[in-house]
């Protein structure tokens, strides 16, 4: 495992910690898209079906359990916690799940490595993760006052994807015969979705302004 992969995973973990900090400590999920969080829970549930059958390392297994557990915990908080759920911007978070789920599933049936249920679901999870941030980005654009934790949460998620790109470049040059086109192309699409957000995040940070996105 190279340094970019490790930093990518740690950034991903940190993004979850930041989100849980906001939800659990401040008891607020204002500005957070439940649609995106539900899509992430679906991404991990379909990708980690092999958790007990395909052992890579203790590190991988522990991380899988953490991402599965936290994603469902976040969804539970936003839907059912009596204080947190009242801070959810339901009227603004209007993106429809099926608009992302159906095309991703269709694509997974068409473009995959093997036609087995596990393989199709794994490929589906890769495609879905690439676009799962979309409802969150739409919600951010509609939010007038983006708080620091929400801005940092999305920044950390984008940074995690950027670090994975660097990880793949290192692996391409250091591991013989290493190719994973489905993961690479989805990863590039996923990182590109953050480009606009990054631009305004850095611009506002440099100008010492509160984060705001043009609508």
């Amino acid at each position: 495992m190279n340094i970019f992969r490790l930093c990518g995973d740690m950034t991903h973990l940190l993004s979850v910690v930041v989100l849980l900090l906001k939800i659990h400590t401040i008891k607020s999920c204002a500005g957070i898209s439940l649609k995106t969080q539900e899509l992430y829970a679906l991404v991990f549930a379909t990708r980690y079906l092999d958790i007990f059958t395909h052992h890579v390392s203790l590190y991988n297994t522990v991380m899988k359990i953490i991402f599965l557990g936290t994603s469902f915990t976040i969804v539970w908080y936003m839907r059912h916690h009596k204080v947190v759920r009242q801070t959810y911007d339901k009227e603004q978070d209007t993106f429809k799940h099926y608009m992302l789920i159906i095309p991703c599933f269709a694509l997974a049936l068409l473009i995959k490595t093997k036609f087995t249920p596990l393989e199709v679901l794994w490929t589906f999870s890769i495609y879905l993760e690439a676009v799962a941030i979309f409802p969150q980005l739409v919600l951010l654009q509609r939010t007038k006052n983006i708080d620091n934790l929400t801005g940092n949460y999305v920044f950390l998620l984008g940074a995690y994807r950027g670090l994975y790109l660097l990880n793949w470049i290192v692996r391409y040059f250091t591991e013989k015969g290493y190719r994973q086109w489905i993961t690479w192309i989805s990863g590039i699409v996923q990182t590109a979705l953050y480009a606009d957000f990054f631009y305004y995040y850095i611009k506002c940070w440099r100008n010492n302004e509160k984060l705001h996105l043009p609508s």
């Binding site: 890579v56 390392s57 190719r179 994973q180 086109w181």
Partner: peptide, 10 residues
């Protein structure tokens, strides 16, 4: 096996 099938990333 091909690396694609190893699924060693998260």
């Amino acid at each position: 096996p091909k690396k694609e099938e190893l699924k060693d990333e998260l």
